[in-house]
Protein backbone atom coordinates (compact mmCIF):
# COMPACT_ATOMS: atom_id res chain seq x y z
CA UNK A 1 0.00 0.00 0.00
CA UNK A 2 1.08 3.56 -0.63
CA UNK A 3 0.26 6.28 1.83
CA UNK A 4 -3.05 8.07 1.54
CA UNK A 5 -5.15 10.38 3.65
CA UNK A 6 -8.08 8.60 5.30
CA UNK A 7 -11.41 10.34 5.94
CA UNK A 8 -14.52 9.07 7.58
CA UNK A 9 -17.22 11.65 6.85
CA UNK A 10 -20.29 11.81 9.05
CA UNK A 11 -22.73 12.44 6.24
CA UNK A 12 -23.18 11.87 2.54
CA UNK A 13 -22.93 15.59 1.91
CA UNK A 14 -19.57 15.72 3.66
CA UNK A 15 -18.41 12.67 1.72
CA UNK A 16 -19.31 14.39 -1.51
CA UNK A 17 -17.37 17.51 -0.53
CA UNK A 18 -14.32 15.51 0.54
CA UNK A 19 -14.36 13.50 -2.64
CA UNK A 20 -14.54 16.58 -4.81
CA UNK A 21 -11.82 18.33 -2.83
CA UNK A 22 -9.34 15.49 -3.06
CA UNK A 23 -6.67 15.45 -5.76
CA UNK A 24 -7.26 11.79 -6.55
CA UNK A 25 -9.89 10.65 -4.06
CA UNK A 26 -11.59 7.29 -3.95
CA UNK A 27 -14.63 6.15 -2.05
CA UNK A 28 -14.12 3.23 0.26
CA UNK A 29 -17.23 1.15 0.91
CA UNK A 30 -16.71 -2.53 1.82
CA UNK A 31 -13.12 -2.43 0.64
CA UNK A 32 -13.36 -5.91 -0.86
CA UNK A 33 -12.15 -4.76 -4.24
CA UNK A 34 -10.35 -1.56 -3.40
CA UNK A 35 -8.19 -2.80 -0.52
CA UNK A 36 -6.64 -5.76 -2.37
CA UNK A 37 -5.86 -3.35 -5.21
CA UNK A 38 -4.15 -0.97 -2.82
CA UNK A 39 -2.25 -3.75 -1.05
CA UNK A 40 -0.82 -4.84 -4.35
CA UNK A 41 0.17 -1.27 -5.06
CA UNK A 42 -1.93 -1.25 -8.22
CA UNK A 43 -3.58 2.04 -7.29
CA UNK A 44 -2.28 5.15 -5.57
CA UNK A 45 -5.18 7.36 -4.50
CA UNK A 46 -4.38 10.51 -2.56
CA UNK A 47 -7.44 10.20 -0.29
CA UNK A 48 -9.82 7.47 0.79
CA UNK A 49 -13.28 8.63 1.79
CA UNK A 50 -14.81 5.87 3.85
CA UNK A 51 -18.58 5.76 3.38
CA UNK A 52 -18.87 2.21 4.70
CA UNK A 53 -20.43 3.28 7.98
CA UNK A 54 -22.80 5.96 6.74
CA UNK A 55 -26.16 4.96 8.21
CA UNK A 56 -28.06 7.03 5.67
CA UNK A 57 -26.76 4.78 2.86
CA UNK A 58 -27.50 1.46 4.52
CA UNK A 59 -31.14 0.43 4.30
CA UNK A 60 -33.62 -1.86 2.63
CA UNK A 61 -37.14 -0.58 1.95
CA UNK A 62 -39.89 -2.46 0.17
CA UNK A 63 -43.29 -1.10 -0.76
CA UNK A 64 -44.85 -3.89 -2.81
CA UNK A 65 -43.91 -2.36 -6.16
CA UNK A 66 -40.20 -1.92 -5.60
CA UNK A 67 -37.34 -2.74 -3.31
CA UNK A 68 -34.84 0.02 -2.55
CA UNK A 69 -31.43 -0.89 -1.29
CA UNK A 70 -28.99 1.66 0.08
CA UNK A 71 -25.55 1.75 -1.53
CA UNK A 72 -23.58 0.56 1.48
CA UNK A 73 -25.92 -2.30 2.30
CA UNK A 74 -23.77 -5.42 2.70
CA UNK A 75 -24.30 -8.48 0.56
CA UNK A 76 -25.05 -10.53 3.69
CA UNK A 77 -27.77 -8.09 4.71
CA UNK A 78 -29.48 -8.34 1.34
CA UNK A 79 -29.19 -12.14 1.38
CA UNK A 80 -30.81 -12.35 4.81
CA UNK A 81 -33.43 -9.64 4.33
CA UNK A 82 -37.00 -10.88 4.81
CA UNK A 83 -38.29 -8.11 2.52
CA UNK A 84 -35.95 -9.03 -0.32
CA UNK A 85 -36.56 -12.75 0.09
CA UNK A 86 -40.27 -12.15 -0.13
CA UNK A 87 -40.33 -9.63 -2.98
CA UNK A 88 -37.43 -10.82 -5.15
CA UNK A 89 -36.12 -14.14 -3.84
CA UNK A 90 -33.71 -14.47 -6.78
CA UNK A 91 -31.99 -11.24 -5.70
CA UNK A 92 -31.51 -12.52 -2.15
CA UNK A 93 -30.13 -15.75 -3.55
CA UNK A 94 -27.73 -13.83 -5.78
CA UNK A 95 -26.42 -11.79 -2.86
CA UNK A 96 -26.02 -14.96 -0.78
CA UNK A 97 -23.87 -16.50 -3.51
CA UNK A 98 -21.30 -13.70 -3.72
CA UNK A 99 -17.84 -14.67 -2.50
CA UNK A 100 -17.60 -16.11 0.99
CA UNK A 101 -19.08 -15.03 4.35
CA UNK A 102 -16.24 -12.58 5.02
CA UNK A 103 -16.74 -10.91 1.66
CA UNK A 104 -20.50 -10.83 2.07
CA UNK A 105 -20.21 -9.24 5.49
CA UNK A 106 -18.12 -6.40 4.08
CA UNK A 107 -18.92 -5.97 0.39
CA UNK A 108 -21.65 -3.55 -0.62
CA UNK A 109 -24.05 -3.31 -3.52
CA UNK A 110 -22.90 0.22 -4.36
CA UNK A 111 -19.26 -0.84 -4.45
CA UNK A 112 -20.05 -3.80 -6.62
CA UNK A 113 -21.99 -1.73 -9.16
CA UNK A 114 -19.49 1.14 -9.21
CA UNK A 115 -16.74 -1.33 -9.85
CA UNK A 116 -18.57 -3.14 -12.67
CA UNK A 117 -16.32 -6.17 -12.60
CA UNK A 118 -17.12 -8.24 -15.69
CA UNK A 119 -17.58 -11.28 -13.45
CA UNK A 120 -19.66 -9.65 -10.70
CA UNK A 121 -23.11 -10.96 -9.80
CA UNK A 122 -25.16 -7.85 -9.02
CA UNK A 123 -24.99 -6.30 -12.50
CA UNK A 124 -27.02 -9.22 -13.87
CA UNK A 125 -29.84 -8.55 -11.40
CA UNK A 126 -29.74 -4.78 -11.89
CA UNK A 127 -29.97 -5.17 -15.65
CA UNK A 128 -32.54 -7.97 -15.78
CA UNK A 129 -34.84 -6.41 -13.19
CA UNK A 130 -34.60 -3.02 -14.91
CA UNK A 131 -33.42 -1.32 -11.72
CA UNK A 132 -32.68 2.36 -11.32
CA UNK A 133 -29.43 3.59 -9.81
CA UNK A 134 -29.84 6.73 -7.73
CA UNK A 135 -26.75 8.85 -7.34
CA UNK A 136 -25.92 12.15 -5.71
CA UNK A 137 -26.60 13.74 -9.09
CA UNK A 138 -29.33 11.82 -10.92
CA UNK A 139 -31.20 8.58 -11.50
CA UNK A 140 -29.61 6.22 -14.02
CA UNK A 141 -31.53 3.43 -15.71
CA UNK A 142 -29.79 0.07 -15.59
CA UNK A 143 -29.66 -0.04 -19.37
CA UNK A 144 -27.56 3.11 -19.36
CA UNK A 145 -25.30 2.25 -16.46
CA UNK A 146 -22.83 -0.46 -17.52
CA UNK A 147 -20.49 0.90 -20.17
CA UNK A 148 -17.70 -1.63 -20.47
CA UNK A 149 -14.89 -3.36 -18.65
CA UNK A 150 -14.80 -1.76 -15.17
CA UNK A 151 -16.60 1.17 -16.74
CA UNK A 152 -19.92 2.73 -15.75
CA UNK A 153 -21.90 5.86 -16.44
CA UNK A 154 -20.74 7.33 -13.12
CA UNK A 155 -18.91 10.61 -13.43
CA UNK A 156 -15.98 11.60 -11.24
CA UNK A 157 -17.29 12.65 -7.83
CA UNK A 158 -20.68 11.01 -8.34
CA UNK A 159 -21.76 8.72 -5.53
CA UNK A 160 -24.30 5.89 -5.71
CA UNK A 161 -26.94 6.41 -3.02
CA UNK A 162 -29.28 3.52 -3.64
CA UNK A 163 -30.68 1.10 -6.16
CA UNK A 164 -34.38 0.54 -6.65
CA UNK A 165 -35.55 -2.76 -8.06
CA UNK A 166 -39.11 -3.06 -9.45
CA UNK A 167 -40.71 -6.20 -8.04
CA UNK A 168 -41.09 -8.71 -10.90
CA UNK A 169 -43.71 -11.37 -11.47
CA UNK A 170 -41.06 -14.01 -11.66
CA UNK A 171 -37.31 -14.03 -11.59
CA UNK A 172 -34.50 -16.53 -11.40
CA UNK A 173 -30.71 -16.44 -11.20
CA UNK A 174 -28.18 -19.11 -11.98
CA UNK A 175 -24.43 -18.75 -11.72
CA UNK A 176 -21.67 -21.02 -12.91
CA UNK A 177 -18.76 -20.04 -10.75
CA UNK A 178 -15.22 -19.77 -11.98
CA UNK A 179 -13.63 -22.57 -9.94
CA UNK A 180 -10.78 -20.54 -8.43
CA UNK A 181 -12.24 -17.09 -7.77
CA UNK A 182 -15.87 -18.20 -7.57
CA UNK A 183 -16.88 -15.02 -9.34
CA UNK A 184 -19.15 -15.66 -12.31
CA UNK A 185 -17.80 -17.55 -15.24
CA UNK A 186 -21.33 -17.10 -16.47
CA UNK A 187 -24.35 -15.82 -14.56
CA UNK A 188 -27.81 -15.39 -16.05
CA UNK A 189 -30.67 -13.49 -14.45
CA UNK A 190 -34.12 -13.91 -16.03
CA UNK A 191 -37.10 -11.76 -15.18
CA UNK A 192 -40.71 -11.53 -16.18
CA UNK A 193 -42.50 -8.34 -15.27
CA UNK A 194 -45.45 -6.30 -16.42
CA UNK A 195 -43.07 -4.40 -18.66
CA UNK A 196 -41.88 -7.57 -20.36
CA UNK A 197 -39.18 -10.20 -20.19
CA UNK A 198 -35.55 -9.32 -19.57
CA UNK A 199 -32.54 -11.63 -19.58
CA UNK A 200 -29.17 -10.37 -18.41
CA UNK A 201 -25.85 -12.14 -18.64
CA UNK A 202 -22.79 -11.47 -16.52
CA UNK A 203 -19.31 -12.99 -16.55
CA UNK A 204 -19.39 -13.54 -20.27
CA UNK A 205 -18.61 -10.13 -21.75
CA UNK A 206 -16.74 -6.95 -20.84
CA UNK A 207 -19.69 -6.04 -18.63
CA UNK A 208 -23.19 -7.34 -18.00
CA UNK A 209 -25.41 -7.33 -21.08
CA UNK A 210 -28.92 -8.30 -22.14
CA UNK A 211 -29.57 -11.39 -24.24
CA UNK A 212 -32.18 -10.10 -26.68
CA UNK A 213 -32.66 -13.31 -28.67
CA UNK A 214 -33.70 -15.08 -25.51
CA UNK A 215 -35.88 -12.18 -24.42
CA UNK A 216 -37.72 -12.42 -27.73
CA UNK A 217 -38.18 -16.17 -27.48
CA UNK A 218 -39.42 -15.87 -23.91
CA UNK A 219 -41.86 -13.03 -24.49
CA UNK A 220 -44.71 -15.34 -25.29
CA UNK A 221 -43.53 -18.43 -23.41
CA UNK A 222 -41.47 -17.84 -20.28
CA UNK A 223 -40.01 -21.34 -19.98
CA UNK A 224 -36.76 -23.21 -20.44
CA UNK A 225 -38.22 -25.01 -23.44
CA UNK A 226 -38.77 -21.72 -25.26
CA UNK A 227 -35.04 -20.98 -25.52
CA UNK A 228 -33.93 -24.53 -26.29
CA UNK A 229 -33.20 -23.53 -29.87
CA UNK A 230 -31.72 -20.09 -29.21
CA UNK A 231 -28.11 -20.19 -30.36
CA UNK A 232 -25.71 -18.10 -28.33
CA UNK A 233 -22.80 -16.88 -30.38
CA UNK A 234 -19.34 -16.99 -28.83
CA UNK A 235 -18.33 -13.92 -30.82
CA UNK A 236 -17.14 -11.18 -28.48
CA UNK A 237 -17.43 -13.30 -25.34
CA UNK A 238 -14.57 -13.50 -22.82
CA UNK A 239 -11.97 -16.23 -23.09
CA UNK A 240 -9.41 -17.09 -20.44
CA UNK A 241 -7.59 -20.10 -18.98
CA UNK A 242 -10.77 -21.27 -17.28
CA UNK A 243 -13.22 -20.97 -20.08
CA UNK A 244 -13.18 -20.46 -23.84
CA UNK A 245 -15.70 -18.17 -25.55
CA UNK A 246 -17.38 -21.21 -27.05
CA UNK A 247 -17.88 -22.89 -23.69
CA UNK A 248 -19.09 -19.60 -22.20
CA UNK A 249 -21.66 -19.28 -24.95
CA UNK A 250 -22.83 -22.80 -24.19
CA UNK A 251 -23.05 -22.05 -20.47
CA UNK A 252 -25.17 -18.95 -21.13
CA UNK A 253 -27.79 -21.29 -22.58
CA UNK A 254 -27.58 -23.83 -19.77
CA UNK A 255 -27.65 -21.21 -17.01
CA UNK A 256 -30.54 -19.36 -18.67
CA UNK A 257 -32.60 -22.54 -18.87
CA UNK A 258 -31.83 -23.40 -15.27
CA UNK A 259 -32.66 -19.87 -14.15
CA UNK A 260 -36.00 -20.16 -15.95
CA UNK A 261 -36.74 -23.47 -14.28
CA UNK A 262 -35.97 -21.83 -10.97
CA UNK A 263 -38.11 -18.77 -11.76
CA UNK A 264 -41.04 -20.98 -12.63
CA UNK A 265 -40.46 -23.39 -9.76
Amino acid sequence: MYNFAYHRPGSLAEAERKLKAAADGRLLAGGQTLLPTLKQRLAKPSDLIDIGRLAELSFIKADGRSVQIGATTRHATVAASAEVRKAIPALAKLAGGIGDPQVRNMGTIGGSLANSDPAADYPAAVLALGATIHTTERAIAADDFFKGLFETALKPGEIIKSVSFPVPEKAGYMKFAQPASRFCMVGVFVCKAGSGVRVAVTGAGPCAFRQSAMEKALASNFSAAAIESVKVSPAGLNADIHCSAEYRAHLVGVMARRALTEANG
Binding site: P179, A180, S181, F183, I241, H242
Partner: peptide, 24 residues
Protein backbone atom coordinates in the same frame (compact mmCIF):
# COMPACT_ATOMS: atom_id res chain seq x y z
CA UNK B 1 -9.86 -31.56 -10.42
CA UNK B 2 -8.80 -28.02 -9.64
CA UNK B 3 -5.16 -27.11 -9.44
CA UNK B 4 -3.12 -26.33 -12.50
CA UNK B 5 -0.19 -24.00 -12.63
CA UNK B 6 -0.17 -22.12 -15.92
CA UNK B 7 2.72 -20.14 -17.35
CA UNK B 8 2.17 -18.13 -20.47
CA UNK B 9 3.79 -20.15 -23.26
CA UNK B 10 5.42 -17.17 -24.91
CA UNK B 11 6.29 -14.75 -22.15
CA UNK B 12 6.89 -17.20 -19.33
CA UNK B 13 4.71 -15.11 -17.02
CA UNK B 14 2.91 -17.00 -14.27
CA UNK B 15 -0.75 -16.74 -15.23
CA UNK B 16 -2.05 -18.52 -12.14
CA UNK B 17 -0.31 -16.14 -9.77
CA UNK B 18 -3.12 -15.69 -7.25
CA UNK B 19 -6.18 -17.41 -5.84
CA UNK B 20 -8.22 -15.64 -8.47
CA UNK B 21 -6.84 -18.12 -10.98
CA UNK B 22 -5.11 -20.90 -9.05
CA UNK B 23 -7.82 -23.10 -7.65
CA UNK B 24 -7.24 -24.66 -4.26
Amino acid sequence: LLEGCVYDDRSGQLVTGSYMDYCM
